[in-house]
Design a binder for these strands. Structure first.
Length: 590
RNA sequence: GCCUCCAUAGCUCAGCUGGAUAGAGCACCGGUUUUCUAAACCGUAGGUCAUAGGUUCGAAUCCUAUUGGGGGUACCA
């Protein structure tokens, strides 16, 4: 719609002899209750016209109608100038741009971006919160790819630390040599089981100590189990062979388990980083900070940065005993990632509970003069809550990722069978379809919500398959594909096929035309939700069109038929491309 | 205490850089299938955009305060 902006500038120049910046021209879609497709909000222009809004709108409308061939008519409602754009304009747009080969193709922008997501702990299986993280990270990566970036997806695995030792210790004590093979349990679930065992036994010890007259705090600190776990961590750090072997074995189980879940979710990574390799990093950055006087050392030897001038606090960056804290590693890891890839931007997909941490991390790197620090971004997302509140592993209120996926697939199966649509499918086809639909429902449910908003999941009521849902969008795609196949559709454009569009056709073409803009906005905002909501609008409007128009296959005018099939085809392409970005598959039939 | 995020229909959510009478889905009520897939379509009903001020021609949107909720807060990650 750039030609409207330019023409409006011309109009203001001609009518009022003023040069205006294009930013003061406020274009929007005309609301449905009025005539026209494009609306100019004239309020910002009255200071140039020195006339009433209505008069200004009228002046502009007349000028545009006379001087811009696409403007066929106009009407003025208060300060809004509604323009009627010629049908031929929209028809040409459809034929020449929307149906062109490159409409949905990627235009590379030459920039590289890293997206870090997933980043699990290896002491327990993934839960619903991790699913949100994974889907978000994957979708944002694909979104950025589609927007022209060279994307590197990385997974920084938290594979060491006291929590890992807890599982290891419990397995050693009470595991009786259980393995995934011997128990039939998925590796991550087996390890998670012993994490829970540890917690149970640890609590017993605490209770006993409290009963013996200790304070709770003392009990927590002095319970033999926790001491033993700490001892184990120390041994691990010293490279004790037995501990390291156990650690490797159990982590191996976990990775096998994670791989299965990742595969089901359809997420992937270009590179894995492991904290066991990175946890010692960052000390040289601390040195660098000291030499640059960005950090300072206290008497006890601990190293700090004073961020009070930036409205934050003093922050510890190295313990008095010289060991790292969380942020020390992250400083080092950030440097390592940059050295590895020299990316222009780096996105951390991490929950909003760590907002403060990343604010500090980025600020420190900036103060250290890292040129790449301004390219860092924390994609902060809200927690997934249950009606009872936060998910807590210890209270057993965690929604397990594998269980949930299995439930979704099962529900998809039930619903599909109720509808009796897959009677002629082979068993393999059925299995694939149920998985596609179940995961589609789950993924859309999680991705349609703005990342930063917290998300409520009620296990008691299953995720919908009707209305604003993944299956609805999938259904729309399948419906179109079925139609095209029945019609023996072949792509071709006849530019003279039609001269008039129905209201809904026009609306649909306008909506489809917005795809590149929606994509760019979604990428800019790192928000798959933009794309999800857009695709829903497309599907919804298509179904309206489908109902309004008489059966296309039976259309006798071959030109009109071809043109309508082209609309269908484009809609299917947009849905397919958009859902692909979200990591949602769309079936050919359902 | 301090910092930060959030609050829109009974429920779950949209609402793009401030623009016209705030939109969807679910649930509820009613209608549509001898015509290309009814996981669809059409319609009814449902709102003090947490509250109070302010800025503006114009505020759900920006600013301030208050209330309610989430998260963080100096040697956990």
């Amino acid at each position: 719609m750039n030609f409207i902006i330019t023409a409006t500038q011309d109009a203001v120049k001609h009518l009022y002899n003023q040069d205006i910046d294009e930013t003061v021209i406020n274009l929007q879609e005309t609301r449905k209750e009025f005539e026209g497709q494009v609306t100019i909000v004239v309020f910002p222009l009255v200071r140039f016209s020195k006339k009433s809004p209505e008069q200004t709108a009228d002046d502009l409308g007349k000028f545009l109608q006379e001087n811009v061939k696409e403007v066929e008519g106009f009407n003025v409602v208060k300060g809004f100038l509604n323009l009627s754009i010629a049908q031929s304009y929209w028809i040409n747009l459809f034929n020449n741009q929307l149906l062109a080969d490159d409409f949905l193709s990627v235009k590379l922008n030459g920039q590289k971006v890293m997206v870090e997501y997933s980043s699990p702990n290896t002491n327990k299986p993934l839960h619903l919160g991790h699913i949100r993280n994974n889907l978000l990270g994957y979708a944002v990566s694909e979104l950025l790819k589609a927007d022209g970036y060279d994307v590197v997806k990385v997974n920084l695995v938290n594979d060491r630390g006291i929590h890992i030792c807890k599982s290891m210790l419990a397995w050693q004590k009470w595991g009786n040599g259980e393995t995934p093979q011997s128990t039939g349990l998925k590796g991550d679930h087996l390890v998670g089981k012993y994490y829970v065992v540890f917690d149970k036994e640890y609590k017993k010890e605490i209770e006993a100590l409290v009963a013996a007259g200790n304070t709770e705090e003392e009990a927590k600190k002095n319970a033999p189990l926790i001491k033993e776990a700490q001892q184990m961590l120390l041994k691990w750090e010293q490279g004790d062979e037995e501990v390291v072997q156990l650690w490797k074995k159990m982590n191996g189980w976990v990775y096998e388990g994670f791989d299965v879940t990742y595969k089901k979710l359809g997420v992937d990574f270009d590179k894995y980083y492991y904290e066991s390799n990175t946890y010692l990093l960052g000390k040289d950055i601390v040195e660098e900070g000291l030499s640059k006087d960005v950090f300072f050392k206290k008497e006890d030897g601990s190293v700090w940065i004073d961020l009070t001038a930036d409205g934050l606090d003093q922050k510890l960056v190295l313990r008095a005993d010289g060991t790292s804290v969380y942020i020390t590693q992250d400083l080092g890891t950030a440097q390592m990632k940059y050295d590895d890839f020299h990316m222009d931007k780096s996105i951390y997909v991490v929950g909003n509970e760590q907002d403060y941490h990343f604010k500090v991390l980025f600020l420190i790197l900036d103060k250290l003069g890292k040129s790449w620090a301004k390219g860092l971004h924390h994609l902060s997302y809200g927690m997934v809550d249950l009606p009872s509140g936060k998910m807590k592993s210890r209270e057993g209120t965690v929604v397990d990722a594998d269980d949930l996926i299995a439930e979704m697939v099962e529900t998809a199966k039930q619903k599909t069978e109720e509808l009796g649509k897959t009677n002629d499918f082979s068993d393999t086809e059925k299995e694939t379809l149920y998985s596609t639909i179940g995961l589609g429902a789950l993924k859309y449910f999680l991705l349609k919500v703005e990342p930063k908003k917290r998300l409520l999941f009620n296990p008691a009521e299953s995720i919908d398959f009707q209305g604003n849902t993944g299956p609805f969008i999938q259904y729309t795609h399948a419906r179109i594909k079925s139609l095209l196949s029945r019609a023996d559709y072949q792509f071709s454009i006849d530019k003279t096929a039609i001269t008039q569009l129905s209201d809904t056709e026009l609306e649909l073409i306008m909506l489809l035309a917005k795809y590149p803009h929606e994509l760019a906005e979604a990428a800019k905002a790192y928000s798959p939700a933009y794309m999800a909501n857009y695709l829903y609008e497309v599907a919804k409007l298509f179904n309206k069109f489908y109902h309004e128009v008489p059966p296309i296959i039976k259309e006798e005018n071959a030109q009109v038929k071809q043109y309508r099939l082209n609309i269908c085809k484009l809609t299917a392409d947009v849905i397919k491309r958009g859902t692909q970005i979200l990591g949602i598959e769309v079936p050919e039939r359902m």
